[in-house]
Every structure is written in C-alpha cells, then in structure tokens.
C-alpha cells in the first residue's frame, strides 16, 4: 500500500463522510426528539436528489441556489408528513411508527417510480478540482463538505441558542415535563420532524451533485445512516457527523486495502450490531 494512494482515498473518504453524517443527522434528530425511526429516510434523500434536478431543469437554478429552496420544501413536507402519518400514533409502540413511516416510504417510491422511472439521472455540475500532491479534490465535494459543516454549525446554533431549539431539546429530554412548562409539544415535534426531513433532503441534493441517482438510490444511504446513527449514539445529531466521518474514512481506506471491497459491509454491519449490544448509546454518546 503506498502512501499516495492511502492519502488520496483517506481524503476522499473523509469528505464523503461529512455528507453521510449530514444525511444521518436528520434521522437521529427525529429519533432523539420523538423515538421514531423514520423508515422513509432513504426515499426522502432521493426526493432531495430529484428536487435539485427538477429545480435546475425547470427554473434553470444552479444546484447551490436551489439548495435553500430544497431545505424549505423539506421543512414543509416534513411537517406535513408528521401530521399525516406520525402524529396520530406518536404514543403508540415502536412498531406502529415504524410501519407508518414505512408506508410513506412505499408511497414515495411508488410515485417516484411512476414519475421518474428507475433509469439513472445525473446533474452536470463542474466546479473543477484542486490538486495537492497525490490528492485531487473535486470542487463539488469540497463545496459539499463546506455546506455540511455550515449546516451542522447552524443546527447547533439553532438547538442551543434559539428559543425554538431549546424547546426541541426540552421535549426530547422529557416530553411531559416540557408540556407542563407550557411548551406546545405537538408543534415542537412537527418542527423537529420537518428539520429532520430538510436535512435528509439537503444531503440528497448534495449527493446529487456528485453521483448519478435513481428514486431507489436513497436506500443505500438509509442503511448507511442507520449504521452512522448507532455509531454516533441514537438521538445525538453531532455524534452522527463523527459517525459519518468514521464510516466515510473506513470506506475510503477499504478501497485500497488488501481486504476485498465485498467484506466492507460485513464489517460495517458487524460493528453496528456490536455497538448496539455493547454500547447502545453509541461511541460518541453523551449519556
């Protein structure tokens, strides 16, 4: 293994890890606040991919200008999704919310397949690249990492410095106590769900600037998000970013290691199950 190849794959993996982390953050935020595992996470990421594509095709918007619009769309549709599919069963056993969000998964994939078929699409974004020794950094990736960092910082600011964010943390901590303090938990839950969906769709948009995609592409990232979320601690958005980086690095380095690439998922899922068993609060879990 030579050092050039290693540093190139490590940097590549590290960068993609930020995007994985951003995607997983949406999933873990929703879980942390309302103990719901959103099984529509993958299709939502795919919707983010198509949203940026359609905004480009129909309104001629540059993907990076379309991104804030996608985030707003995500927020609105996430709130709608909460009231349609989740609110009625928010206090029911896990199974119920798992199935409710899975039904949304089926509906999105169903409609998406009709509208977009399953043939691959791609955005044509070229921001050039920067060369530093053996390491080549694509402009699209660098910008995506930057946006992921800004989004994480923004989420942190929102959760810890704003009134709405503090309400979200209060509800996540203890819903009935927060309600006694006069917090309208229904709206807080809906808002959190909206933010979670917006993050997932945003990460989808960024992924679309780098890879080709279909309506089914979200599934891969959904499964990765599960691993990342468990790694970072279920319900911990900032742990998710770290978890994403770990998984990204692992995948990057695996491409040049003597281990056949096929074994990477065995390791990933093995670690996933092990962490659940040994340390369900995650490697970076605060509690």
């Amino acid at each position: 293994m030579n050092i050039d190849a290693l540093s190139a794959s490590a940097v590549d993996g590290l960068m993609i890890g930020f995007i994985y982390g951003l995607a997983a953050m949406g999933l873990t935020l929703i879980f942390g606040v309302m103990r719901v595992i959103n099984l529509a996470h993958g299709p939502v990421i795919a919707v983010g991919m198509f949203a940026v594509l359609l905004l480009g095709q129909n309104l001629g918007l540059n993907p990076y200008i379309a991104l804030p619009i996608v985030l707003l769309l995500g927020l609105a549709s996430g709130i709608a999704m909460y009231f349609i599919a989740v609110h009625r069963v928010i206090n029911a056993p896990e199974l119920t919310t798992l199935l409710a969000t899975f039904s949304v998964n089926l509906m999105i994939v169903g409609i998406g397949t009709v509208l977009f078929t399953t043939s691959p699409r791609a955005l044509s974004v070229d921001l050039g690249s920067v060369q530093a020794g053996a390491v080549t950094v694509l402009g699209t990736k660098a910008v995506a990492v930057l946006i992921a960092i800004v989004a994480t910082a923004g989420l942190y600011y929102f959760l810890y410095r704003t009134r709405a964010g503090k309400s979200i943390r209060a509800v996540a901590n203890n819903r009935s106590a927060a309600e006694l303090m006069g917090i309208d938990s229904t709206w807080v839950l809906a808002l959190s769900f909206g933010i979670g969906i917006a993050l997932a769709m945003g990460s989808g948009s960024l992924l679309a600037t780098m890879f080709s995609f279909t309506i089914l592409s979200g599934t891969v990232y959904e499964v990765k998000s599960f691993i990342i979320v468990v790694l970072g601690g279920l319900g911990n958005p900032f742990g998710a970013l770290l978890g994403g980086i770990v998984i990204g690095l692992l995948e990057g380095i695996a491409t040049i290691s003597p281990l056949p690439v096929g074994w990477v998922p065995v390791i990933e899922f093995g670690v996933f199950v092990l962490i659940l068993l040994v340390r369900p609060t995650g490697l970076f879990g605060a509690r």
């Binding site: 595992i37 896990e94 093995g270 199950v273």
Partner: peptide, 14 residues
C-alpha cells in the same frame, strides 16, 4: 424496542 428492531436489521445485513 427500537434498538432490538435495528439490531435484527443489522444481523440480516451482516
């Protein structure tokens, strides 16, 4: 709860 459900998904994928 959810931890068990996730673990069974993980086992299937492993």
């Amino acid at each position: 709860g959810a931890y068990f459900a996730l673990a069974t998904i993980g086992i299937n994928e492993v």
